[in-house]
Structures are given as structure tokens and as C-alpha cells.
């Protein structure tokens, strides 16, 4: 009983939830990376991104979590799926694995991870002396229109360029020569 009660205590629940979300994220990531079928990968990515959204919630920003779901899961993943679906045979090709390559990739990936872990563990992360606790979305909006005004403008240009480019490259102009 005690143990059950302790289980439903908020911190413990939070811990369990956190663990679950981390597990979800990592599982999703693994699925996104390992299987050879592209559709599994994309589903894995969706799972993973959902997990990341959950982590964002844990990090105190439900707004960003929402955005994550909206933009990543909602837009990016969907566009990938569309790309796969629109170009019919894209998902049919299942390239074989080459073990040496996987091994090498694993090695380099592991090396990078070890390097990052070393950095993380060896660094003394100092919090800022003065910390504001203003998490409101209003402030966020205000920031976007003041300090990050330029970036905000520019990213629209980025998106415009990307869309234009996508249209030109993949769009009407590119009929395959055959």
C-alpha cells in the first residue's frame, strides 16, 4: 500500500513519467535509425519527437512542446511521408546493410558520444547568478518582436527561399528527361 501510495506521489509519478518519456524518446530514436524500411523510420521519428515534446514539458515549456508536436510531427514528418508517398517506389527499395559500414558508423557514433559524455561530466555547469523566472508566453512573444526581431524576419525569408527552392527543384520544372 505504502509502496503504491508512494508510487502515486507526484514526484515519483513524475519520475516514472520522465523515465517513460525518455524510454519513448530513445525507442523512437532507435526505430528511426535502425530498421531498413523507411516507413518504420518515419514512425519511429514521430514517436521520438513526441517523446522530445514530453521532455520539453518536463523542462517547463509546454508551449514549445506543443510547437514541437505541431511543427515537427505535424509538418516535417508529414511532409516526409508525403514525399515518400508521392514518389511511389521510394519506400520499396530496401537497401542491404553492410556490416563493416554499420560497425564503423557505430564506432564513430560511440566516439562522439564518449566525447560528449566526457564534456558533460567534466564540466561544472554554473547557473547564472541572477535568474529570472518569467516563463510566460507573452514575454516570449515580446522577445520575438524585440530582441529577436531580425531573426524572426529572416526566418520568414528562409522559409520563403526554401519553399521557392523546393518548388523549382522538385516542382514543375523537373521533368525527368526520359
Amino acid at each position: 500500500m505504502n509502496s503504491v501510495q508512494s508510487l502515486i506521489q507526484p514526484q515519483v509519478l513524475a519520475q516514472i513519467g520522465f523515465a517513460g518519456i525518455v524510454a519513448l524518446t530513445l525507442t523512437g530514436a532507435l526505430i528511426a535509425v535502425f530498421p531498413r524500411n523507411i516507413l518504420y523510420n518515419i514512425l519511429g521519428l514521430i514517436v521520438c519527437l513526441t517523446g522530445v515534446a514530453g521532455i520539453f514539458v518536463y523542462l517547463g515549456s509546454p508551449f514549445i512542446a506543443l510547437m514541437e508536436l505541431l511543427i515537427y510531427v505535424g509538418a516535417i514528418c508529414i511532409s516526409i511521408i508525403f514525399a515518400i508517398m508521392l514518389s511511389r517506389p521510394l519506400h520499396l527499395s530496401l537497401p542491404k546493410r553492410a556490416l563493416p559500414k554499420v560497425g564503423l558508423a557505430l564506432g564513430v557514433g560511440a566516439a562522439v558520444f564518449i566525447m560528449l559524455s566526457a564534456i558533460i561530466s567534466r564540466t561544472e555547469w554554473q547557473p547564472a547568478a541572477m535568474r529570472s523566472s518569467d516563463w510566460s508566453i507573452a514575454t516570449l512573444g515580446a522577445y520575438l518582436l524585440t530582441r529577436y526581431n531580425l531573426v524572426f524576419e529572416v526566418i520568414s525569408l528562409v522559409l520563403l527561399v526554401a519553399i521557392l527552392g523546393a518548388i523549382i527543384i522538385a516542382g514543375y520544372a523537373r521533368r525527368s528527361p526520359s
Binding site: F56, G60, S61, F63, I64, M67, E68, I71, Y72, A75, I76, S79, I80, A83, L86, S87, A128, A129, M130, R131, S132, S133, D134, W135, T139, L140, Y143, L144, Y148, V151, I155, V158, L159, V161, A162, I163, G165, A166, I167, I169, A170, G171, R174
Partner: peptide
């Protein structure tokens, strides 16, 4: 010190990622 900055970064990363995905996908199609 300011809990807004990180969020904004994340937001922008998403935007950039979206643009990147769009271009990448179009090139992949090509």
C-alpha cells in the same frame, strides 16, 4: 538567466529544420 532565450532557440531550430526538410526533400525527389 532568462528562461525565454532557450525556448526561442528551440522554436527557431524547428523553423530551420522545416525549411531544411523542404529543400532536402525536394532535392531527394530530384
Amino acid at each position: 538567466p532568462d528562461p525565454i532565450v532557450g525556448q526561442i532557440y528551440t522554436l527557431f531550430i524547428m523553423g530551420i529544420a522545416a525549411a531544411e526538410a523542404a529543400i532536402a526533400l525536394s532535392i531527394i525527389v530530384a
